[in-house]
């Protein structure tokens, strides 16, 4: 058991060493090439500080743009994603447990999920005009499918013995969904949620790039128009950091909720084949 924390610490160290090394290389290369389009990371960080932080305690030392661009963008992306999660999981579990309903809807779902999500932006732009409504509709419709299909798959993974067990003990309907179907589907659901989160962020940026008057995507577009590439890179770094943080937060939640799963190292070799 003492091996594990040590290995984890080593992995952590290795990861950030590689990262630091890459940043140093990036710094050197950009300084040598001296390109307008690719500022060195040290400069980007400086711009980040100037962009987002102010000496104003009343707004928690955060610049206006944090409240006017970053938070609204995040709220839309996460809000859309949450709606996606609720709709996708409940609909997916229902479809996964009802063969007939699934057969009726399968071709329709197959087509809808094949539509490249950005192609939905013009549709909702015409329907709702520019604004949060259009963005959230795009995110919900575009990011729904991974959660939905993974939930269907997960719900189907409840095997015959478990169904028989639950029935023979006369498990109530709610307990059956809450304590059997849902946890059985959870590993798959999380896989779907992660993909959907990535799609939500993409669609958030994309819809803001195409048409909006505020938000992270809008700021990136604006810095292109004004040829301020340092600013643009600052926003790109922010996007990367947000994506990284959100994804890791989701992973942490996943590890917590799937704590019951056998750890890979600890599991006997046969567990893989048997599971």
């Amino acid at each position: 058991m003492s091996e594990q924390p040590r290995r984890r610490a080593l992995g952590f160290l290795e990861r950030w060493l590689v990262f630091a090394g890459a940043v140093v290389v990036w710094e050197i290369v950009t300084r040598i090439s001296d390109s307008v389009f690719f500022p060195p990371p040290s400069k980007i960080v400086q711009f980040c500080a100037e962009l987002w932080f102010v000496a104003e305690p009343t707004q928690l030392f955060l610049a206006d743009t944090v409240y006017e661009d970053i938070l609204p963008s995040l709220a839309r992306a996460l809000g859309g994603w949450l709606i996606t999660a609720v709709v996708g999981i409940s609909l997916g579990l229902a479809l996964g447990r009802s063969r007939i309903a699934y057969e009726y809807l399968n071709p329709l779902v197959t087509f809808l999920r094949s539509v490249p999500p950005p192609a939905l932006i013009p549709v909702f732009m015409v329907a709702f005009g520019i604004g949060a409504q259009m963005q959230i509709a795009t995110i919900v419709f575009g990011a729904l499918w991974p959660v939905l299909l993974n939930s269907v798959d997960g719900a189907r993974s409840v095997d015959r013995v478990k169904t028989d067990t639950a029935r023979s003990f006369r498990i109530s309907r709610t307990e059956w969904i809450r304590m059997v179907v849902f946890p059985a589907a959870l590993p798959k659901i999380f896989a779907g949620l992660r993909t959907s989160l990535a799609i939500s962020l993409i669609l958030m940026v994309m819809s803001e790039l195409v048409s909006s008057n505020h938000g992270i995507g809008y700021r990136i577009q604006l810095s292109q128009n004004t040829f301020s590439f340092d600013t643009m890179w600052a926003w790109l770094v922010l996007l990367g950091a947000l994506g990284y943080l959100l994804n890791n937060a989701l992973l942490a939640l996943e590890r917590r909720m799937l704590g019951w799963q056998p750890k890979r190292e600890a599991a006997p070799a046969t567990a893989k084949a048997g599971g």
């Binding site: 013995v161 003990f169 498990i171 307990e175 304590m179 946890p183 059985a184 959870l186 019951w260 799963q261």
Partner: peptide, 23 residues
């Protein structure tokens, strides 16, 4: 098939308690 009949996401005690919930 005990490995499939027990619910892997529930602890041993929760597995034993599980049918009692619905009762």
């Amino acid at each position: 098939d005990y490995s499939r009949s027990l619910f892997p996401w529930l602890t041993v005690r929760d597995n034993v308690e599980f049918p009692l919930r619905s009762r």
